[in-house]
Amino acid sequence: MILRVERLTRRFGGLLAVNEVSFHVEKGEILAIIGPNGAGKTTVFNLISGLLHPTSGQIYLEGVPIAGLRPHQIARKGIARTFQTTALFNQLRVIDNLVVAHKLRTTHGLLDTLFRTRRWRADREKSLARAVEVLEFVGLREKALHPVSTLSQEEQKRLAIGVALATEPKIVLLDEPTAGLIQDETDGIMTLIKKLKAAGVTVCVIEHKMRLIMDLAERIIVLNYGNKIAEGTPEEISRNDAVVQAYLGGEYAA
């Protein structure tokens, strides 16, 4: 078990955005989180990645409690994430997005940088190698030296996943990786997520489009108004009455 979330709760004033939610993610699996708008999915990711602190509850990464740590500390511990509205360093070239995302795995300091010591060069080689490896993985090898602004929507989403991978994470959290994409592009991203699984990467993905997730995820958890209302295999979820009522009623039956 890589990630375990226990009775996670987050209150915004009077609003219980996440209410006593517990779940876990096994090594190498894809866990999907689904739920209608405002269900609290993104908030769960913000809590896990340290952008928000829980009102109560705990988060364990490989058994070690991490709630309360700051985002950069959690990233160093091995949790990477993407954002619902694609976040990239759009003032940097494509490859530099990945090189800078690998900085947390380097050990050189300021003096190494100024004197370009052997350690600095070794780290640079390592980061570049990792960046190229990731670029190849997400299919952006030819775009390495381009500015981010020249990438298409889908390429930017790929790069965002690449940025997460460049941190050498133990688990990747993907927040609606296909949001705003047309059908073809969506398929491309789905193929990439399958490729992640094949490569042994542990993934927790938020996805709106229920159909997409059905043949991708091992397990699904369903949030509604901050509560976990169901958990199970895609099959079980699609047969779950509470889920059908709360969420699938319109979309899935149609």
Binding site: L51, A75, A80, A87, F89, V100, L104, T106, T113
Partner: peptide, 28 residues
Amino acid sequence: RLVNSVQGLSFVAVRNNEVLAGAVGINA
């Protein structure tokens, strides 16, 4: 030397998107 290094990239990264910088382990 500073600017043409990962250190320099991290300065720009913080300027560019502080939240993402944090998410990739940069202490902004």
